[in-house]
């Protein structure tokens, strides 16, 4: 179970990797909540796959536009300079590499960057939506996930057991315990959540974890 404090720090840490000028798609669920941790006035373009660039804040109850939702169904707004387009244009933006970054949820992330986040055969099969194209074609893919599942099993694994969303796509993993990078050598521990030890992260990770000699930053 991820405490709300740990979750908040994980989201804030992911938000810190969004830099001015980026075009970003935040996946449905946890990643969408990263937007609440971006500095006010940050020059960044959020893309929503149902046909919006320049997504703005979620509207308060009573002020929603019935025709303006994001891909997760939240009633959003557009920033000055925002644009609407059809779904073919929206995925042209994705497939042609115009997204600098996408942050996606994960069931499993493997040491080679494979991502599984759309189907658990026999239990959960709602369809992939836009996840396959986002994972395969955004220039950088970050996964945001609890470090272990509800049963305590690692979500960072040596090889995915679930059907893939995309192979070799994830380059950085943000969890409630750590920030890890996927490198050609495997998973490398980069940062620790406050109050979490290296040993705890190693034990909660289902793949070999490279731990640098230098002291690790804490988030």
């Amino acid at each position: 179970m991820v405490s709300s404090n740990a979750k908040t720090r994980m989201l804030a840490r992911a938000a810190a990797d969004i830099v001015p000028g980026m075009c970003v798609n935040l996946g449905i669920g946890l990643p969408t909540q990263v937007v609440g941790h971006l500095p006010a006035g940050m020059p960044v373009c959020l893309h929503s796959e149902n046909g919006i660039s320049g997504v703005g804040p979620v509207m308060p109850a009573g002020q929603e536009d019935r025709n303006l939702i994001d891909a997760g169904g939240s009633y959003v707004s557009t920033l000055p300079g925002g644009a609407y387009f059809d779904s073919a244009v929206s995925f042209a933006i994705v497939r042609s590499g115009r997204l600098d970054l996408t942050l996606l949820g994960a069931f499993e992330v493997a040491a080679n960057g494979d991502l599984a986040n759309w189907i658990i055969p026999g239990r959960f099969s709602p369809g992939a939506g836009g996840a396959i194209e986002l994972a395969q074609r955004a220039r950088r893919v970050g996964a945001i996930t609890a470090h272990v599942d509800k049963a305590g099993n690692p979500k960072i694994v040596d090889r995915c057991t679930l059907p893939l969303t995309a192979s070799g796509s994830v380059s950085r993993i943000y969890t409630d315990m750590a920030v890890c990078d996927v490198t050609p050598r495997g998973v490398v521990l980069r940062e620790l959540a406050e109050g979490v030890s290296v040993r705890e992260v190693v034990e909660a990770t289902g793949a070999p974890l490279e731990v640098p000699d230098a002291p690790l930053p804490v988030f």
């Binding site: 059809d86 779904s87 073919a88 995925f91 042209a92 369809g127 992939a128 836009g130 194209e133």
Partner: peptide, 10 residues
């Protein structure tokens, strides 16, 4: 029949 969303659109 499931399609990736942008593939369905295309």
């Amino acid at each position: 029949e499931f399609n990736a969303q942008g593939i369905l659109a295309e």
